[in-house]
Design a protein around this nucleic acid. Sequence first.
DNA 1: TTCTCTAACTTGCAAATTGCAACTTAAGTG
DNA 2: CACTTAAGTTGCAATTTGCAAGTTAGAGAA
Lengths: 142, 142
Amino acid sequence: MPKHGSETWCGCPIRYGATVLGDAWALLILRDLVFKGARHFGDFVAADEGISTNILSDRLRMLDREGIVTREADPDRAVRVIYRLTPKGRALVPVLLAIVNWSETWDVRTEVPGPFIEAYRADPEGFSESLIAELEAGDAAD
Amino acid sequence: MPKHGSETWCGCPIRYGATVLGDAWALLILRDLVFKGARHFGDFVAADEGISTNILSDRLRMLDREGIVTREADPDRAVRVIYRLTPKGRALVPVLLAIVNWSETWDVRTEVPGPFIEAYRADPEGFSESLIAELEAGDAAD
DNA sequence: TTCTCTAACTTGCAAATTGCAACTTAAGTG
DNA sequence: CACTTAAGTTGCAATTTGCAAGTTAGAGAA
């Protein structure tokens, strides 16, 4: 598969999407950022129940390179790093919610809280926008 | 990462999504099924510009196992196999379109025809539904 | 000052997965 | 009966992953 930016790269949107989302660990990292408020390296290690730290390191680097997350030093404890979603990263919320809705509909093992999925289905765009607004507000509060 | 159906599996919708969509080749195969009308093994080989036939074979098997595509013998030429999206597979259309919209918005190299993306943005749900209806009609016509 | 703790990684290595090329099978076609 | 097309499979080298252990760096305690 050609690399993004190579000569044989084409303008296909799914192909670009695949370079970011076409990786199971990256999807779970994004999940933790959006739905679980993960901000630190250790949060992802704890939440994913099984990601190796070298893989996590690699994927966070990729998400940073693609402009989806930023890395900052924690002003309180310099040893900590804060990962945050950029606007480009928050713009993935509709994609993640569409996946949530699909899994909830078609996979019997998947369980999503009723009120959550009902609110999404009633107004997908509005629901996405409020979740994005919440994430923005959460970031500004830090 | 636990396997779908294992003891440690949880009901997380993104995790299930990741087993299907968290693979770059699977995403490209789905793209070819939805947007390029690919139906035969050779269509995917030609369209993806680089997928190995062993990987393609493996991913089509996975999509079949997950109930996203079906495999049928071609009634005209028995040597051919027809791959088709199931309703579960067609239900991924909103996910793919959300990815298309995201890439078009945030990746400068991505190029989507103006009318297509404008129609999607004007009414994402309606656009998804008509694309799904088109796919259903196309299948019935074969 | 040194000791210990926490957090975020990096390193080394075995195991699994991928990519490439060649080969196989099966059904028509001339 | 050779030839062609379509859909794979096989073998193997190279890359990537997963696991465990080690490293670095800051902050507080002894």
